[in-house]
Simulated assay, not measured.
Amino acid sequence: MAEPVHDTIKSSLQAAEGLYHRLVLLVGEAGSDKTEAFHDVADELGTEVVNVNLVLSSELLELTAKQRALRLPEILDRIVDKVQSTVVLDNLEILFDKELKQDPLRLLQSISRNRPVVASWNGVIKEGKLIYAEIGHPEYRRYDMADTLIVSMDGTATIDLEKNN
């Protein structure tokens, strides 16, 4: 299953080259083997997978709650600057923490302006919307899919939809 997804991620990265935000989201629920697909892509691209929860939490540890919210975008940008090529981000749950007062999709878009980024998204696509968490959950988010390249764990991608229209 990871092989078609792997190829679709690479195709989506190529399609993102000319876009303002060079962001590709791999969307799937927890346990859907996104991490395995990421490691395959990272190996082929000669880069590494960044575990955002691990790296970011250690950077935020010494800061107050207010400092965390204010400095998170700068810290995340510094983390991805260390990667010399395509940035592959996994385990993004920390970005959705209500205490950090961030818009996770906007954060990902901002770091993808100057470099290609592939990021995991623990959620689903329903009725043309990108969804994280369930309605009523404190971290629930719902976005329009416009201006976002999305690859689903079933191998479908927004670039395929654009080709068909």
Rank of each mutant, 00 (worst) to 15 (best):
F96Q: 01
E74T: 12
D144C: 02
K66M: 07
R115G: 02
T35L: 13
K66C: 00
D7Y: 10
D7T: 11
A30S: 14
D154C: 10
D160A: 14
V117A: 02
S120N: 06
S120V: 07
P4A: 07
G155V: 09
V27R: 04
M145K: 09
V55F: 05
Y20D: 12
I9E: 03
E74M: 12
V5N: 06
P116Y: 01
W121I: 04
G28R: 06
G136V: 07
K129F: 11
L45V: 08
D77Y: 09
K126M: 09
Y140K: 08
H39T: 07
S152N: 13
E127V: 01
K82F: 05
L13N: 01
E74F: 09
V87T: 08
W121A: 02
E93D: 15
V88K: 00
S12K: 02
F96G: 00
I94Q: 02
F96Y: 15
L72Y: 03
S120A: 15
I135V: 14
V117Y: 02
D103K: 10
A16V: 05
S57V: 09
L54W: 08
E134F: 07
H21E: 11
E93W: 03
Q109T: 03
L54I: 05
T47P: 06
S58H: 12
T47E: 08
H6I: 00
S12D: 03
I159N: 06
I94V: 15
I150V: 15
P73R: 07
D77P: 00
L23V: 07
S152P: 00
G155M: 09
K163I: 10
S58T: 13
L76Y: 05
S85C: 05
K10F: 08
Q109W: 07
A119E: 02
H137M: 06
K129L: 10
S152A: 12
D160L: 14
T156E: 12
E44D: 15
H21N: 15
D43T: 12
D90G: 04
I150H: 06
Q67E: 15
N122W: 07
L72T: 14
L107K: 01
A146P: 00
P116A: 08
N165E: 13
G155P: 05
H21M: 04
N91A: 11
I131C: 04
N164W: 10
E17W: 04
L13Q: 03
L105R: 03
P116D: 03
A69N: 07
K98V: 14
L95V: 06
K101S: 09
T64A: 10
S57N: 14
M153P: 02
I131D: 02
I94T: 10
K82E: 14
E36K: 13
L13H: 05
I159F: 12
V55M: 12
V88N: 01
L61W: 12
I131M: 10
P138H: 11
N165T: 10
P138F: 11
D90S: 12
A2F: 09
I9V: 15
G128P: 05
L23A: 08
